[in-house]
Measured scan of single mutants.
Amino acid sequence: KKYKVVEVKENKDGTVELVVENENGEKKKITLSKEELDKLKAGDTVELK
């Protein structure tokens, strides 16, 4: 499934919390490390299994 990044929030521990949404409007929260996030920004599309 493809999800669009709608919100990006940095946590104090250096991880980043993303809120992503698919075309049905379903939202998910995922947490990434700073390194994983470096290639993402709001409006990008991510694929989740």
Rank of each mutant, 00 (worst) to 15 (best):
K1H: 08
K1N: 12
K1P: 12
K1A: 10
K2H: 08
K2V: 10
Y3C: 12
Y3G: 08
Y3I: 08
Y3Q: 08
K4S: 04
K4T: 10
K4Q: 08
K4W: 09
V5K: 00
V5A: 01
V5E: 01
V6Q: 03
V6K: 04
E7K: 03
E7M: 08
V8N: 00
V8S: 04
K9L: 14
E10G: 04
N11I: 05
K12I: 13
D13W: 03
G14R: 02
G14E: 01
G14I: 00
G14M: 02
T15Y: 11
T15M: 08
T15N: 06
T15H: 03
E17C: 12
L18M: 07
V19K: 03
V19W: 09
V20S: 00
V20H: 00
V20F: 07
N22T: 07
N22Y: 04
N22V: 08
N22Q: 04
E23N: 05
E23I: 10
N24M: 14
N24T: 11
N24L: 12
N24S: 13
N24Q: 12
G25T: 01
G25E: 01
G25M: 04
E26M: 08
E26H: 10
K27H: 13
K28G: 06
K29A: 11
K29Y: 13
K29D: 02
I30Y: 05
I30Q: 01
I30W: 02
L32D: 00
L32Y: 06
K34D: 07
K34M: 13
E35S: 11
E35D: 14
E36M: 10
E36W: 15
E36T: 09
E36F: 11
E36Q: 07
L37P: 05
D38C: 13
D38L: 06
D38P: 15
K39N: 15
K39G: 15
L40G: 03
L40T: 10
L40K: 05
L40W: 07
K41D: 08
A42S: 08
A42M: 11
G43F: 03
G43Y: 02
G43A: 04
G43W: 03
T45K: 06
V46T: 06
V46F: 02
E47L: 02
E47T: 02
E47I: 06
K49I: 15
K49V: 15
